[in-house]
């Protein structure tokens, strides 16, 4: 038959079906994550005798469960922002170092070193933090408290190594590589001809970077920072044993207060009752939503960057 010569290949349908199916499966998983977290959170939220969003205390395992996300969310946001403030300037420096300062031959190796920093598992940072950094931070913390105690952040009568600040330092170290890696990428993409334009005008290296590299890289750096922020908020094990694990809202980062949603899940899971598990799942849902918003914002900036990219000029 003539027609059969132009028939569709027999494998085409099934193969196409399999690839489409895999994609749909991913969508289904995303939907399932939202659905199942809600399903398991609702009974606990109904059993809660306080208001989930404003309550600070976390005692979901009691006969009269009282729990709320307020202190945990506060700690999550504060510690992550502190980490961001510490990590971003250093990450930009590292990225510039690799893209524009380091000798060519070294640059590749140094980029690899930064990638290694990212490859160290979070539990190892946790161990390092507990054994080494907590005692080590006693000194710098006392210094901050003595000389900068007038800033509310560093105020307080006593100073602890196991503190919000120490947790933030660990978070900063952990998000630094990703911010540095993305920033390095965008700095390297800065168009050479624009860089040469500023050099030919008699710009110093720094002036060249300020005129040609930073304006071009700014959106990329911002979205890198947002991705880093999302990571810091979700980081669990590295800080689970570093946060003092209390349920107070305390701006003093050197005090014995501080906690995060993720750390609380890791710490509270072991002895949680069914209501307790539900409460932790509810807190996880909140974490999911916060990180989702942060990550979306980051993606949005990246997408916008593509439209306004100076490379097209």
């Amino acid at each position: 038959m003539r027609r059969s010569a132009f028939r569709r290949s027999r494998g085409e349908g099934p193969f196409r079906f399999a690839t489409t199916g895999a994609g749909i499966l991913l969508l289904a998983i995303m939907a399932a994550i939202a659905v199942f977290l809600v399903v398991k959170a609702v009974p606990a939220l109904q059993a809660n005798t306080s208001h989930f969003l404003t309550e600070k205390v976390w005692t979901p395992n009691a006969t009269k469960p009282v729990f709320g996300i307020a202190a945990l969310a506060f700690g999550t946001v504060l510690s992550s922002f502190l980490a961001l403030i510490m990590a971003v300037p250093i990450a930009i420096g590292v990225a510039l170092f690799i893209s524009h300062y380091a000798p060519r031959r070294l640059a590749g190796v140094l980029g690899y070193v930064i990638d290694l920093l990212a490859a160290v598992p979070s539990v190892v940072y946790g161990l390092w933090g507990v054994i080494f950094l907590i005692p080590f931070m006693q000194g710098p913390s006392t210094f901050l408290n003595t000389y900068f105690g007038w800033i509310p952040l560093f105020a307080g009568d006593a100073v602890y190594g196991k503190s919000m600040l120490t947790a933030s330092v660990v978070l900063a170290i952990m998000i630094l590589p990703i911010i540095a890696a993305i920033s390095r990428e965008v700095f390297l993409q800065a168009p050479k001809m624009i860089e040469e334009a500023s050099l030919a005008l008699g710009a110093t290296r720094w002036e060249m970077i300020r005129m040609s590299v930073l304006p071009f890289g700014r959106p990329g750096v911002i979205s890198a920072a947002m991705l880093g922020l999302g990571r810091a908020m979700g980081e669990t094990i590295a800080v689970a044993l570093i946060f003092p694990a209390t349920f107070d809202i305390d701006i003093r980062v050197l005090s014995a207060n501080g906690n995060s949603i993720a750390a609380n899940i890791a710490n509270g899971f072991g002895e949680a009752t069914p209501i307790g598990q539900g409460a932790l799942i509810a807190s996880g849902l909140v974490l999911f939503i916060i990180t989702l918003v942060v990550n979306m914002a980051a993606r949005l900036i990246i997408a916008r960057r593509k439209e306004f990219s100076g490379a097209a000029a």
């Binding site: 168009p191 334009a197 030919a200 304006p215 100076g310």
Partner: peptide
């Protein structure tokens, strides 16, 4: 330069 390179920003 060969190709016009005004600062895009």
């Amino acid at each position: 330069f060969q190709r016009p390179n005004p600062f895009p920003t």
